[in-house]
Amino acid sequence: MTAVAAEGLRKRYGDTEALAGLDLEVPAGSVHGLLGPNGAGKTTAVRVLTTLTRPDGGTATVAGHDVVRDPVRVRARIGLVGQHAAVDEVLSGRQNLVMFGRLYHLGMRAAKKRADELLERFRLTEAADRTAGEYSGGMRRRLDLAAGLILAPPVLFLDEPTTGLDPRGRTEVWEAVRDLVDGGTTVLLTTQYLEEADRLADGISVIDRGRVIAEGSPERLKARIGGDRVDVVVADPEAVAGAAAVVRRVTGAEPDVDEEALRVGAPVSDRAASLTETVRALDAAGVPVADIALRRPTLDEVFLHLTESEEVPA
């Protein structure tokens, strides 16, 4: 079963093509990550899928209903947590949740009960009767998330749900998401944190300029830019260029250079042999090495690799 299906979604704002034929397929019960640089079209995609914005072209169904033709049915089956906390800042946290519960057409008692449960779950019980406008950014974010979870909807959209949260807040959000998924909810989340997608998502769509440029499980995406990598950290800034030259020669690949961290890295095909050869070549070239290691690529590197290579032909 497919929970979210989009085909050729287009949306134009003046000269900007926010969505340029976006395709998406999210199996029910899975977590799907939408990754992309600023302005890639993530929020626009979420707005179209949550019926807030009408697409210029293409089709999309959410929980089996067309977002353009049947928005009311879609709205009854989704939760949305937008990029910016959307809560009433004059009301207390509890008043917010009760109000939203009522607007989801829960009875007064059910709305109050649900509010209490969610306050408890997001560690807001103590602050429940304080004005939401006085909450810290993280608390407001958690309240916002709680409001999106009132119905435990079949499909939940989270637009950068952990931006601005401390590590503890982030962990709580992740746990809440996993809980929901265990209960059968499908989650579509956008994020800047690749770690987040790596930890949570079953599938990832990397989008850039309104189009999907890569798709697959985190593992598959990592595999796409080669398996292992060799990382060299040099002892002083002068040596970075020398190290880069050596790594280029040994691996045959253009190395990624991080000037600040004094690190040079490149994908390698043959683990042990490459490591030995790199060590030897660095030694021969007289490059002062602080550290050298073999490791798996991070999703960050996959991401940069994909979005950069996309920019070249433009």
């Binding site: 057409h105 829960l106 059910a110 649900r114 779950r121 009132i150 435990a152």
Partner: peptide
């Protein structure tokens, strides 16, 4: 997992 109430559209 807390079971959530059902609302109505």
């Amino acid at each position: 997992m807390i079971s959530a109430p059902a609302g109505g559209g």
